[in-house]
Design a protein around this nucleic acid. Structure first.
Lengths: 127, 127
DNA sequence: CTTGCCTCTGACGTCAACGTCAGGTTCTAG
DNA sequence: CTAGAACCTGACGTTGACGTCAGAGGCAAG
C-alpha cells in the first residue's frame, strides 16, 4: 500500500501522512527507491490518530500515548498522561454540553416566539 | 470598569479583550482620553464569548450569533448558523465521547492487568 | 512634580497542523 | 519506450487567537 492509497483509505491528505511520520506517529517501510509502503494495519492507526487530534491532543501527546493505546505498553508517565487526557476530554464534553444547551435555549426562544410562529422546523429541543 | 479590571474579573488577558473589540464582539465606552470603560454587564458577555470560543466557533461566527444569543434578535441566516453550530457541537460531543470511552478501555486494560479486563467506564454518557 | 502603574495604538512574533510549490525521480499503462 | 500519474525531499505560506514589545500618553499618591 502506497501513501496515496493510504490517503484515499483514510481520508487524510498525503501531506498529513508525511507529517505524521515526521512527528513519529507513523512508520513506513521504504522500498529501494525510497517510496513509503504501508501494511493494512496502519489504516486503523491513522484513524486513531485522527480521533486523538480531533479530541484536541497534540502530536507530542499522541506520540506518547500511541504505544499505550495500540500495544498496551505503558510507563507511569504515559499512564498519568492518559488519565489527564481522559479527564480533560471529560471536562471538554461537559463544557460543550453546557454550550449546546445554551444554544438550544436560544433556539427555543428565537425559534418559536411565544405565539404560533412554527415555520421554523420542529427539532428535538432537549435531548 | 477599566480593561485591566475586566481582564481580572473574567480571567481573559487585556490583549484578548482588545482583540474581541477588534473583531466586533465587544464594544467599549471611551473616556475623553481614549481609555475603555465597561459596564458590569460585559462580564457575562465575555464569559459567553469564551464559552463559544471553547466550543470551536470562530470570531466571525460568534459575531454573527451574539446578537442572537444576547438580544434574542435573529435573521434567517443567523438562525441557520445557530442550528448548524448546535449540530456541530453535538457531533463533537459524540466524537469526544467515543474517544473518551476508548481511552477508558485502554486505562482498564493497562491500569489493572492482573484482574482481567474489567471496565472502569460506568460514567454518564453526557446526555 | 514626579514616581509608578495603567492604558493607548500599531506592529511584528508565535505555534500547530498542515497547504502548496519547486525541482527531481519512479512507477505504470499503452 | 514514452507519457503521465504518483512519489520524493526540502522549504516557504497559511490561519486564528492571541503574546509581546516599542513608544507615548494618562492618573492617583506622596
Amino acid at each position: 500500500m502506497r501513501i496515496g492509497d493510504l490517503a484515499a483509505r483514510t481520508g487524510v491528505s498525503v501531506r498529513a501522512l508525511r507529517y505524521y511520520e515526521e512527528q513519529g506517529l507513523l512508520k513506513a517501510n521504504r522500498s529501494g527507491s525510497g517510496q513509503r509502503h504501508y501494511p493494512e494495519s496502519v489504516v486503523d492507526r491513522v484513524d486513531l490518530i485522527q480521533m486523538l487530534y480531533a479530541a484536541g491532543l497534540s502530536s507530542r501527546t499522541i506520540a506518547e500515548l500511541l504505544p499505550c493505546v495500540e500495544a498496551k505498553v505503558s510507563t507511569p508517565e504515559s499512564r498519568a498522561r492518559l488519565f489527564a487526557e481522559r479527564d480533560r476530554i471529560d471536562a471538554q464534553i461537559a463544557g460543550l454540553t453546557r454550550t449546546r444547551d445554551r444554544l438550544d435555549a436560544v433556539i427555543a426562544s428565537t425559534g418559536s416566539p411565544a405565539s404560533g410562529c412554527t415555520y421554523i422546523a420542529d427539532r428535538d429541543v432537549a435531548t
